[in-house]
Measured scan of single mutants.
Amino acid sequence: AIERGSKVKILRKESYWYGDVGTVASIDKSGIIYPVIVRFNKVNYNGFSGSAGGLNTNNFAEHELEVV
Rank of each mutant, 00 (worst) to 15 (best):
45 Y>I: 15
54 G>N: 06
7 K>E: 06
31 G>P: 06
54 G>R: 04
12 R>N: 07
9 K>A: 03
18 Y>Q: 00
55 L>S: 14
17 W>H: 04
64 E>N: 01
17 W>V: 00
10 I>Y: 01
59 N>L: 05
7 K>Q: 13
35 P>C: 14
68 V>M: 10
2 I>Q: 00
19 G>L: 13
68 V>T: 06
24 V>Q: 01
57 T>K: 06
56 N>I: 11
13 K>G: 04
39 R>H: 09
53 G>E: 14
12 R>C: 14
1 A>R: 13
19 G>R: 04
32 I>T: 13
53 G>V: 10
51 S>L: 09
58 N>L: 08
68 V>Y: 06
36 V>C: 06
37 I>V: 13
37 I>Q: 13
28 D>G: 05
2 I>N: 02
46 N>G: 11
39 R>C: 15
11 L>F: 01
29 K>S: 12
47 G>N: 09
42 K>D: 15
36 V>Q: 00
14 E>C: 15
14 E>A: 06
5 G>S: 03
39 R>T: 11
39 R>Y: 10
68 V>F: 05
8 V>H: 01
27 I>D: 00
26 S>M: 12
33 I>V: 11
22 G>H: 03
60 F>L: 02
58 N>G: 15
32 I>Q: 12
62 E>I: 12
33 I>M: 11
25 A>N: 05
54 G>E: 09
31 G>M: 11
38 V>A: 00
18 Y>N: 02
67 V>E: 04
11 L>C: 11
33 I>L: 13
12 R>E: 04
32 I>V: 13
48 F>P: 15
31 G>K: 09
38 V>I: 04
58 N>H: 13
33 I>W: 07
15 S>L: 02
60 F>E: 00
41 N>K: 14
3 E>F: 07
44 N>C: 15
3 E>D: 08
40 F>H: 03
45 Y>L: 15
9 K>Q: 04
46 N>A: 04
43 V>L: 07
53 G>F: 04
47 G>K: 04
28 D>Y: 04
28 D>P: 02
46 N>R: 01
7 K>H: 12
16 Y>R: 03
55 L>P: 06
9 K>I: 10
2 I>D: 00
5 G>M: 02
33 I>Y: 07
61 A>M: 07
23 T>N: 02
62 E>C: 14
32 I>E: 12
3 E>T: 11
41 N>E: 14
8 V>R: 01
7 K>F: 11
63 H>S: 12
31 G>F: 11
57 T>N: 05
39 R>W: 12
51 S>M: 11
48 F>N: 14
26 S>P: 00
49 S>D: 15
43 V>I: 13
15 S>P: 00
13 K>D: 04
38 V>P: 02
57 T>F: 11
11 L>D: 01
14 E>F: 05
66 E>T: 06
27 I>H: 02
9 K>N: 03
29 K>C: 14
62 E>W: 12
2 I>V: 09
10 I>K: 01
48 F>H: 14
26 S>D: 13
13 K>N: 06
29 K>F: 13
55 L>W: 09
61 A>T: 03
57 T>L: 05
2 I>A: 03
31 G>E: 13
7 K>D: 04
15 S>N: 04
66 E>F: 07
9 K>V: 08
40 F>V: 05
66 E>M: 09
6 S>K: 09
6 S>N: 08
28 D>C: 13
63 H>D: 11
62 E>H: 09
18 Y>S: 03
24 V>S: 01
27 I>K: 02
37 I>C: 15
56 N>Q: 09
68 V>N: 02
28 D>F: 03
16 Y>G: 03
35 P>Y: 13
37 I>L: 14
22 G>A: 04
61 A>Y: 07
6 S>G: 04
32 I>K: 10
25 A>G: 04
6 S>E: 04
45 Y>V: 15
4 R>M: 13
31 G>Q: 13
8 V>Y: 00
3 E>R: 12
50 G>K: 05
5 G>Y: 03
29 K>V: 13
35 P>T: 12
21 V>R: 02
67 V>I: 11
61 A>N: 05
34 Y>K: 06
41 N>I: 11
19 G>E: 07
59 N>F: 08
15 S>T: 02
17 W>S: 00
35 P>D: 11
27 I>L: 06
38 V>G: 00
31 G>I: 10
8 V>P: 01
63 H>G: 05
27 I>A: 01
3 E>C: 15
28 D>R: 04
28 D>S: 09
64 E>G: 00
20 D>C: 14
60 F>R: 00
48 F>W: 04
61 A>D: 04
2 I>K: 01
2 I>L: 08
40 F>Y: 02
49 S>H: 09
36 V>M: 03
17 W>C: 06
8 V>K: 01
21 V>W: 08
20 D>S: 09
62 E>L: 12
28 D>T: 04
3 E>G: 10
2 I>H: 03
28 D>I: 10
16 Y>I: 06
65 L>Q: 01
18 Y>A: 03
37 I>E: 14
42 K>S: 08
4 R>W: 07
37 I>P: 00
57 T>W: 15
21 V>Y: 07
62 E>R: 08
13 K>A: 09
20 D>M: 09
13 K>I: 13
51 S>E: 14
5 G>D: 04
37 I>K: 14
46 N>D: 15
52 A>W: 09
15 S>D: 12
59 N>W: 08
60 F>N: 00
62 E>N: 08
36 V>F: 14
47 G>V: 03
17 W>E: 00
20 D>V: 12
21 V>N: 01
26 S>T: 08
39 R>V: 14
45 Y>A: 15
30 S>P: 06
3 E>L: 08
17 W>A: 01
50 G>R: 02
54 G>H: 07
32 I>C: 14
65 L>M: 03
8 V>F: 00
9 K>W: 00
27 I>W: 05
34 Y>P: 06
19 G>W: 07
60 F>D: 02
53 G>N: 11
50 G>N: 08
